[in-house]
Design a protein around this nucleic acid. Structure first.
Lengths: 123, 123
DNA sequence: AGGCCAGTGATAATAGATTATCATTAAGGG
DNA sequence: CCCTTAATGATAATCTATTATCACTGGCCT
């Protein structure tokens, strides 16, 4: 049986409010607003379960920090801000795969990572 | 003073032979062919020094494993093979940055990561 | 309302990557 | 060739992220 706990609700709500990929620490900070006392172990447990249920997807970022986000469905990439360190979704792709993949290689998927400063940090 | 040790030579030679980005463990395996007894600490020490001297550059890959490569100079990206786990350089870019960056955001740099199977692993 | 047990929280344990320590080795100037 | 000392190798230590443990709590079925 799977229970609908306050903790799990708070975690999912954090993603709905943030509207961007979140790291474990960010999820913890946001969800603790709704659910004081929430512990890291619970975050990890629920993340694993939610990813298994396809309610969240993993975004592997360089540097070893895994981010999680709601499955939007459409093809998109990510923008990492050097100022606030937040990661934002970027709609669309802009990648021309033709003539990029070496001869004999088989392309399965791709990631585009943009780095710079977000709206707030650009000023 | 900076000494031209056999260890440092073996490390740089590994990159020249491999002609692709290498992880610490790969560098160790390759360089030990020229320099038996070479230890990990020496790899890390030299990598740090070589990156400081711009003789190597760091490639941060998702998953937290850092790769190193010779500074080729030209703009390129990387292809990660799901079969042999090796990473290869891919010349060119193919990314149309226009209309990709959100309003107000400032783009500083970008990375394109391709995943699939290399020539050998495609067969 | 009562009770079972999945889920939780605090913390210890684990895992993997990188760094520090220190006795020993060897690069290279004189 | 000798001597200074930077660099090395083995290993312990550290650091960070994640998982396991276990007593306790609260969701939810009856």
């Amino acid at each position: 049986m799977e229970r609908n706990t306050q903790q799990r609700q708070a975690i999912l709500k954090a993603f709905e409010i943030a509207e961007r990929p979140l790291a474990v620490q960010e999820i913890l900070d946001l969800a603790q607003g709704d659910c004081p006392g929430l512990g890291v172990a619970t975050i990890y447990r629920n993340l694993k379960a939610l990813v298994g249920d396809k309610k969240l997807i993993v975004v592997d970022m360089p540097g070893g920090v895994a981010l999680y986000e709601l499955p939007g469905g459409h093809h998109h990439h990510h923008f990492s801000c050097n100022g606030c360190q937040k990661v934002f979704d970027v709609d669309g792709c802009g990648l021309n795969v033709k003539n990029l993949v070496p001869n004999g290689f088989t392309l399965k998927r791709h990631e585009v990572l943009l780095y710079g400063f977000c709206d707030s940090c650009s000023r």
